[in-house]
């Protein structure tokens, strides 16, 4: 993929200019973004740092987190210049990473395993194909962090209808009925959000769609292992506290 590139620019020309050094070395999109505002590494804007900590991180890096050290590449004066520039970011702008990625909740190892099983990326998102919990997944089915149901295998059977458009018949969840209707087509392994003319759509309240068929990839034991994550997510709700 596109590279996490740190550029060797003609160092002499910009030796003392922390802003220019930052632009060239730190502001690349995989890292801290323009003026420390974005990137996949943490946003620097809005934090209050200790300048000697910044100096040592820029020098030695944070190897475990993928932050490279620059001591082999920049002189001490240059690192100082970058540090001075980074210190100017304090207190400005919002803290959240623009991509929302570093905002992911850190869980205990047990809960982490439970969450991984719920989303189960290696099997096309598992429950996350249809349920959003704690900021991951698709909002097709009900919000499981607000639900009281523990019927993880079978769901509730509520809300799914049989839709007919011309010769097509498929299970669906209708979102906004009207002259233009949006509905989830559940006849696809990855649910499809379709937009159809209300006049073309017929629905039948009865449906043979079966939640259990969608959770077949999970053994009973695995469904048990998912429970702690849902329990945790339910406790996070304001009204649950």
């Amino acid at each position: 993929m596109k590279s996490f590139v740190l550029f060797a620019v003609t160092a002499a020309a910009i030796a003392q200019d922390g802003a220019a050094l930052f632009r060239a070395r730190c502001a690349v999109p995989y890292c801290h973004g323009q003026a420390g505002s974005a990137g996949r590494a943490p946003k620097l804007i809005g934090h209050t740092y200790n300048s000697s900590a910044v100096f040592s991180i820029v020098s030695g890096g944070l190897p475990a987190k993928g932050m490279p050290g620059f001591d082999r590449d920049l002189t001490a004066e240059e690192i100082e210049a970058v540090t001075r520039y980074v210190m100017t970011f304090a207190g400005a702008g919002p803290r959240k990473n623009e991509w929302g990625i570093s905002s992911r909740t850190q869980l205990t190892p047990e809960l982490e395993r439970s969450r991984n099983l719920f989303f189960d990326a290696a099997r096309m998102n598992g429950c996350g194909r249809c349920h959003e919990v704690d900021g991951w997944g698709s909002k097709v089915g009900p919000d499981l962090s607000r639900s009281a149901s523990w019927n993880l295998r079978g769901g509730s059977g509520k809300g799914v209808v049989t839709a007919r458009i011309g010769a097509e018949t498929f299970p669906a969840l209708v979102l906004e009925p009207g002259s233009v209707t949006r509905l989830w087509d559940l006849g696809s392994r990855l649910p499809v959000l379709r937009t159809v003319a209300g006049a073309d759509l017929q629905t039948d309240a009865a449906s043979r769609w079966d939640h259990a068929a969608e959770t077949r990839a999970y053994s009973d034991a695995e469904l048990q292992l998912i429970r702690p994550f849902l329990q945790w997510a339910r406790k996070q709700q304001p009204d649950a506290r």
Binding site: G128, L193, T195
Partner: peptide
């Protein structure tokens, strides 16, 4: 030019 369908291939926040 009207959208007919969209599919979430995998949650972008999850998969990076």
């Amino acid at each position: 030019g009207k959208e007919k369908w969209r599919v979430n291939m995998e949650d972008t926040r999850q998969c990076g």
